[in-house]
Amino acid sequence: MSLPEANRLIYASPNGDCWHLLFDPTTGHSFVRHTGNVASGGHVTDFSLSTFLASGRNSPEHQELWRLIGTLVGESGPRQQVSDVA
């Protein structure tokens, strides 16, 4: 059974390149997959989140992933977690 958002499109460029955010349930890690357009051979490259995010902020695919991350924390900052009080 696959997770509902185990594969989420981050950005599709006008030339046909696509970037997806994926989750590997066997490792528990998320990563970014770039699929090149057919004209360039359609090569697929996987990046760890840290590698992808460190590689730039100005491209549309990076901006879209940062926007997506921003939706998780909202305007008021990260959600507070309730911790056990001893």
Rank of each mutant, 00 (worst) to 15 (best):
P14R: 01
G77F: 14
G42M: 13
A86E: 07
F52H: 03
N7D: 05
P60W: 09
Q63Y: 07
N7V: 10
S13R: 10
H29E: 13
S76F: 01
D46R: 01
R79T: 04
C18R: 12
H20N: 03
D84Q: 11
S76H: 06
H20I: 03
I10C: 01
T27M: 05
E61M: 04
L3V: 06
Q80P: 14
D24R: 08
T26R: 13
I69T: 02
I69R: 10
H62I: 00
A86D: 09
A6S: 05
P60M: 03
P4S: 12
E64R: 04
G42C: 00
N58A: 15
A6K: 09
V82S: 15
N37Y: 13
P78H: 11
G16W: 15
T45P: 03
E61P: 09
P4L: 13
L22H: 00
T51W: 00
Y11P: 05
A6T: 14
G41T: 14
A39N: 15
W66H: 10
N58C: 11
D17K: 02
G36K: 14
L53M: 08
D17W: 07
R8F: 09
H20W: 06
Q63C: 03
S83I: 01
G74K: 02
L53H: 09
T51R: 03
T26M: 11
E61D: 07
M1D: 14
H20T: 10
S40D: 13
G41D: 11
I10N: 03
H34L: 14
P25Y: 02
G74L: 08
E75Y: 01
M1N: 03
V73P: 10
N58R: 13
F47C: 04
L49V: 11
G56V: 04
G16T: 08
V38K: 04
G70T: 01
H62P: 09
T71Q: 05
G77R: 06
F52Y: 09
V32T: 00
S76P: 14
L65V: 02
P4E: 15
F47P: 02
T27I: 12
E75C: 01
V82L: 10
S59A: 07
T71N: 13
R8V: 12
A39E: 12
D46F: 00
L9W: 09
G70S: 05
L72M: 15
R8C: 09
F31L: 11
L21K: 04
S40L: 13
V32P: 00
R79A: 11
T35N: 01
F52I: 04
G41E: 13
W66F: 14
N37F: 01
H43Q: 15
G56R: 03
G74D: 06
W19F: 10
S48P: 04
V44G: 03
Q81I: 11
E64V: 04
R67W: 13
A6W: 05
P60A: 12
E61G: 05
R57Y: 06
W19N: 02
N37M: 08
L49G: 08
Y11G: 13
